[in-house]
Design a protein around this nucleic acid. Sequence first.
DNA 1: CTGAAACATGAACCACTATTCAACTCACTA
DNA 2: TAGTGAGTTGAATAGTGGTTCATGTTTCAG
Lengths: 204, 204
Amino acid sequence: MSAGTPAPNDKTPRTARGRRTLRAILNAAADEFGERGYHEAAIARIAQRAEVAIGSFYTYFDSKEAVFRALVADMSLQVREMVGPVIMAAPDRLSGEKAGIAAFIGFVRQHKALYRIIDESAFVAEDAYRNHYRDIAQGYAASLARAFGRGEISDGDQEIRAWAIMGMNVFLGLRFGVWDETLSPERVADVAGDLISEGLRPRA
Amino acid sequence: MSAGTPAPNDKTPRTARGRRTLRAILNAAADEFGERGYHEAAIARIAQRAEVAIGSFYTYFDSKEAVFRALVADMSLQVREMVGPVIMAAPDRLSGEKAGIAAFIGFVRQHKALYRIIDESAFVAEDAYRNHYRDIAQGYAASLARAFGRGEISDGDQEIRAWAIMGMNVFLGLRFGVWDETLSPERVADVAGDLISEGLRPRA
DNA sequence: CTGAAACATGAACCACTATTCAACTCACTA
DNA sequence: TAGTGAGTTGAATAGTGGTTCATGTTTCAG
């Protein structure tokens, strides 16, 4: 997300009952989209899962795309709230980097189906997808710039670096989070973290 | 692709005319899928673009998904045939890495719409998507292993590294190839190549 | 030349599903 | 307890678009 306001439309529930129903629909939608993907997902099935009538769905959302977008925003926020603090809490840059990767992979494993939603948004709601990564990249680039200021890392284009490192994370998350869980997140994070801080160069 | 045989089904054209038509359909499909994405794409429109009847489409493909898969395989091959040799031709590892990234970003810029097809295959034909990256990762990891054998790079899990570097490439391709062309591929490749070989560590 | 195989045609069929809407129930206030 | 806005219902609407198939045309080996 980028705005501070909760929602611009007036479909916000006004009672406790409404909030419960909205939550049920949101959860059901996450399951449905996660399992079947955007286009295979059906509103009727979402309503069924949520145990509400189809009409109730439209009490809270304007369209299929609207729920999807709401879900992307949700996921986006969750990822950042989960991974960001982990990096911040670390004593030094390298361990922070590693902890961040491990946390991310862990998150992906915990939310496999849901994570798919962010990825699919590239084809369903491209602007939401772009915003998600733009936001993360901005924050990351800024933190790299600060690290450079403290003399912890070398000079370089921090935005390009941020995108490169994000890409690493996303692919590692897919490969070792979603597709295959045989390696521990820490193991993957060790290798990747080392790559980020030292590169491939031969060492004594 | 993984198999050596061209195609297992018997829809292969037997005459020159047939081969021409197939090619026309394939090109039309690439355009249609590239522009509108898998689900917005319509067989009727593909046929129209190719200037053939709908029925002719089904002379060469069993279904919408089948053309899409054929296209993914095509793209997959093209990418590898374009980028691989560039890396191989370089005098040393670092310049090869950089040339590879630059070539990849260049390729993406040249084939924006088509590149999207590979990405979308993650949601339409997941196995094709997996195969594509599995193949690339294997080749890349092997080449890293050889580089280690020659003492050019440090020891480490080459598979994890391969996936990390692929992720970098893909994201940089998206950000600086598809979304925004203001930076030169070489500029991006310089920063990323440096990151790969030296990491972020502060230097004198 | 000729006939069979290959190829081309596009209207019709069919299954699917996002969205609307008019009637109804519930919760809560005054 | 009446009144009202919030919430609920699900059949009906409307439109889409993948796939089939019976019929016609082209190609080319023999």
